[in-house]
Amino acid sequence: MRGCAVRQAQPLFVTKGTTKLLLIISATVEDKELLEKFAHPESRNLAYNQLVRKYQQKVYWHIRKMVIDHDDADDLTQEVFIKIWKNLENFRQDSQLYTWIYRIATNECLSFLSSKKRKFFLPINDITAELMEKVEASPDIAGDEVQLKLQKAILRLPDKQRLVFNMKYFDEMKYEEMSAILGTSVGALKASYHLAVKKIEEFLKQD
């Protein structure tokens, strides 16, 4: 197109031996530095690559714990990073970069789960049953009886409460950070988490 600058993400081809080194470098790159690099067309692809390497695990695990299935989590993780690529230029730095990324990932998860419910005209219990079945049968999930029972107990929670529980219990996030990501007050998050713990423990007592 004439008169219109076009930016394209180019894959950076690196050998397998250098990927681990890149991962270590990316993890230490500051968000501010990444954003500065991304603002310049000549270093944009490099900055984006470093951003993906820095946040890929956090985004993936955040999503995986919600959707359970690896293929769904893989697809959603890629979607999240595509959204980041498209919108990072307009990121106003009112919040921290990781908060913004987590928010995109959270929204993707919740809309995926609600669209799944709508698509198959299934009530919530059936979706829960489907996810529980995956916990029991998937070869990508390994754990002892107690661990699997805990996962099934978590799945019985409503989606948003499940999100709160995962972020607090597994990711050990501060309520203030969670509040910035979820846009919910600290008090409401505390109440939601304690209620979730209570429900889970009730379920764990059952045979």
Binding site: L23, N49, I82
Partner: peptide
């Protein structure tokens, strides 16, 4: 190790 390449290609 492979995910960043796949993300870059898809983007």
């Amino acid at each position: 190790d492979r995910l960043p390449m796949r993300v870059m290609a898809r983007t």
